[in-house]
Amino acid sequence: MRKARIILGHGSGGKLSHDLIESLFMPRFINPILQAGDDSAVFPLTDSDRISKRRQLSEDEIAFTTDSYVVNPLSWPGGDIGRLAVCGTVNDLAMVGATPLYLSAAFVIEEGLPISTLRRIVTSMQRAAKEARVKIVAGDTKVVEKGSADGLFINTAGVGLLSGEVKISGSNAQPGDMVIVSGTIGDHGIAVLSAREGLTFSNSFKSDVAPLNHMVDAMLRTSHKVHAMRDPTRGGLATTLNEIARQSKAGICILEEQIPIREEVAAACEILGYDPLYVANEGKLVACVAPEDAERMVQVMRKARYGHEATIIGEVLSGPKGRVIMRTRVGGTRIVDMLTGDMLPRIC
């Protein structure tokens, strides 16, 4: 192996993905907007050369993001690639505090895909867009030869509007902030895995794919002290908390006992040898909120459709900088690192 090649782990959202971005993409595309490293780029509608490194709060900032969806199988209990493609991009916009408005959708379709499948997925996108109150305003369709794509890939890009008062960034978590998670972790990853061949359980798990923008709206109306927010998708809660800790140059301590997890998801993780902290979510968010507003925030989130099980799971500390630690049930502590490589079922 003299020539380095892309392996699946580069797409897992964990350390390899970060290394690839930092060593290959970032140096070539570098600019202050990209460098912010949040789920969406935030910028005023002006010539990029006039944007300084320090973000000025102004009325007419927009948020912009894009994401490609490649998932096998195309549908699973609780969702499909269409709903995911809309919700994922809507959530990326919501995580910087923007109100999502417009989406584009590009389809790369493998020759031979049944039209009925495509119709079902596009209908599901229509429904998700309606729920999130966004419009799909541009699109593209490409068909590739059999074998060049796995059924269907979807890319969506999205634009949202920011109000001048909002400054939410993964780099803005403050020591003392409470870390809130909006519900049970791992539901999506386990649902997709169990729908895949070979890991079949007789129960059907339900994925949590959902648009979170309405809950975020309610949160931002409750408090101006939401400092950092992110949706723990690929790489799971552990990877997202590490991103926030690194970008904010702070430490994060979470309590094992407080982390909400469905019993059947916990059981699947036991059997497959997964750590639920690393399993993907598509309808959950993590927020770092000033302590004086945290309790109220949890109450508000619990009233939202997708936040019934919101709870405080830990706290932002001044250090150790860039690290996430967990107090275990039996009173020990451990480091919680980013996901390394990709997740494989293991018997070890």
Partner: peptide
């Protein structure tokens, strides 16, 4: 652990000793 040991050398409060108030 490796980073856990680095942790104790930073002089920062360790979660082990610091009660997290929830």
């Amino acid at each position: 652990e490796e980073e856990g040991e680095a942790l104790s050398q930073t002089g920062e409060p360790q979660a082990n000793n610091k009660p997290v108030t929830l």
